[in-house]
Amino acid sequence: MGSENNILRVNNLQTSFFIDGGHEIKAVDGVTFDVPEGKTLGIVGESGSGKSITALSILKLIDSPGKIKGGEINLKGENLVDKTEKAMRKIRGNTISMIFQEPMTSLNPTYTVGQQIRESYKIHQGLGKRESTEKVIEMLKLVGIPSPEKRINQYPFELSGGMRQRVMIAMALACNPELLIADEPTTALDVTIQAQILELIKELQDELGMSVIMITHDLGVVAETCDFVAVMYCGKVVEYAEVKTLFKNPRHPYTVGLLKSLPRSDIDQLELIPIKGTVPSPDNMPEGCSFAPRCPFATELCHDHLPDLLEIGDGEQIRCWIYTDDWDGDPEVKVYEP
């Protein structure tokens, strides 16, 4: 992956929340990944994996008591972590845009669709009402909203969930961003509407040449839309690979566990193999690998020491002792058998 042009490189990002007078909860703990230009990176993980906090950290939208503690967020050679709030405002909605999970609540209920999209043009391009209205209509047309001249004066509650998510996309893409962060953009939508929205994001990406970070819990969405994928567990990336590699040959026991526990609509499965136990609570993280308590292969080494995220060739990265020379368990261990 080093040879490609990356629009964004996140290196060892750490975001923590300090509650009850200094007690620290490490929501994002050393996250590293690259977003190649013009491509889609999927960040996949279950609730509490830190994937949404990672996304908000990129735009530095972490509210108190949260804080970006360390690491680098490199946007085309500039480290966003060092930027001032004022400089970040020029990037938000302009170079990097974001759409969210809940189209129902992510739009302001007291302003019309037009007013809300127009605001982006006003902030970043200084356009007045008349100049921007034309652009807003164009944008609404682009995201497939029928009769945009009428919709522009409607309030969010007058639109369906799918239409609202289109409005969110129109708003995010208004200033032609280079990177779009989509945080679970279809989770709240029905499958047939999800298909429309995913299709739309893909089409717009081809047309506008932007890069996308797709944050999701749904491995199906990853397979359908992403080029690269980072699997997160307990605030860390445990596996980073090209999408085809990941689904053909998943390596981390957690990734494999996820795939085996997923009920699929395209094939009959005799049984689901769940991952045993539950995600450890953030204030009681294991000392070693955070997946060790649930991992069928874990040894003492795993329980006591945290493995590094290591490159194992082909741009693939794994955070697991099994793939290191230090592995002290069964040397023939097969994590995944197709």
Binding site: R89, K90, S97, T105, S106, T110, S120
Partner: peptide, 26 residues
């Protein structure tokens, strides 16, 4: 703490404008 305030921040709206334009009316 509503989602649409986060949306406004992600758009690059200034904090003062968020308070008086986006939050107050609601």
């Amino acid at each position: 703490s509503q989602d649409y305030i986060r949306t406004a921040r992600a758009k690059g709206v200034r904090e003062r404008v968020i308070i008086y334009r986006h939050a107050l009316k609601n």
